Simulated assay, not measured.
Amino acid sequence: MKAIQMTTFGEPDVLKYKTIEDPKPSNNEVCVKLFAAGVNPNEAYVRTGTYAFLIPDLPYTPGFDGAGIVESVGEDVTRVKVGDRVFVAALLAQKNTGTYAEKVVCDASAVHLLPESFSFEQGAALGIPAVTAYRAIFQRANIKPGETVLIHGASGGVGLLAVQMASSIGATVIGTASSEEGKNLVLQSGAQYVCNHVTEDTIEEILALTNSTGPDVIIEFLANANLETDLKVIAPYGRIVVIGNRGSIEINPRNAMAKECDILGTAVFNIPKKQYEECLIGVSALLKSGVLNPQVGSRLPLSEAKQAHIDIMSKKAKGKIVLVID
């Protein structure tokens, strides 16, 4: 089969498009013929060989998320059958041969039914982004109906799903985006308000939308740039959930003391197994009920995984980047 494989760590050009042996499922494993694979920042970090959460053995085929049709199953598999349309969310799977490929073999528990109303590309946009959004919104922030939520970078793959989840339970959502196209996507996903990215100069705009109290919850994608501003704008007793960071930042802890607010971190590799499974059960239910509508931002052929990794780290992604597999 055709796949992306890396034999060394490094820049995106270590991602090579080549022919490798087809994987075969063992007990409690499933083989899925893939038609799309999701591209995540985590995979770009893993590619460097410096990611604290995972340094894989080489050669290695990247990819945790994808969607396609079940081709074969190992013994004792009952949750899916050959021919089922499915999405793959294999981040915490014990077995995962990588979704940047025409086929993937992974734990049966990582394979979930994909409703007919969703495309394979939309299915590939779930996995890490959907689990991250669900974890941040429901398990860490514990958002309640009627609360106000500020979602930084709401036009990305995770952000749009977070907007949909928060608005579905009656929260008031403020999203930020840098382009008009991104802002329109945020509004279409259910946000009541959308504005430019929050800076020291635009704090008053957020306060004006929240009766001068600030949002109850902030979902933060770039804490090294925004955390100090978050502490100034958050409502008293509010919660800041950090799900993204690319460096260090100096903050004044007195801002947290004065608000008695909480700063909550989350990283998908750290989610306890039971809570991770709860995330996927919740995501599947929201998908089936029509709450979730994954947005695919750009599509590239599998052979252009190198470019996908360049794009995913450019901070300009709108919706999900997906590799299309013929």
Rank of each mutant, 00 (worst) to 15 (best):
G214N: 07
S167E: 02
A125M: 09
I249S: 14
T199S: 15
A141G: 08
S155P: 07
V186I: 12
M165E: 07
T210C: 07
S167H: 13
I219A: 08
N211F: 09
L161R: 05
I203G: 04
C195E: 07
G244M: 10
I143Q: 00
V233E: 02
G190R: 02
S178Q: 03
T172S: 07
D201Q: 15
R135I: 05
Q188S: 14
P215G: 08
S167T: 14
F221N: 14
N196Y: 00
G238I: 12
V194L: 11
A133S: 14
T199P: 04
A177Q: 03
I219W: 09
A125Y: 03
E200S: 15
G190S: 09
G170A: 06
N252I: 10
G170W: 05
D230Q: 04
H197W: 04
I219M: 15
A208I: 04
A191R: 01
A125G: 13
Q192L: 13
R246F: 10
A208W: 00
T210N: 04
A141Q: 00
S178P: 01
P236N: 15
T148L: 03
Q188H: 04
L150E: 01
G175P: 05
T213E: 12
I206L: 11
N211Q: 13
G157L: 13
S168Q: 02
A191I: 12
T202R: 05
T172F: 00
L161D: 00
S248L: 07
V131F: 03
I240L: 06
A154N: 04
N226P: 01
L222E: 05
E181T: 14
A171I: 09
A191P: 07
K144E: 11
G157D: 09
K144G: 01
R140C: 08
I249L: 15
I251T: 12
G170R: 10
E181C: 00
V131Q: 10
V217M: 08
L150A: 06
L207T: 11
I174V: 09
A235I: 09
I249W: 00
S167W: 05
Q192Y: 07
V194C: 14
N196V: 06
P236Y: 13
V173P: 05
V149H: 07
E205F: 06
D216G: 06
V233P: 04
A171R: 01
I151C: 07
V173Q: 05
N252V: 08
G247V: 13
P215C: 10
E250S: 14
S155C: 10
K144R: 15
I243M: 15
N211E: 13
Y193T: 01
E220P: 07
V158E: 05
A208K: 15
A162D: 07
T132H: 04
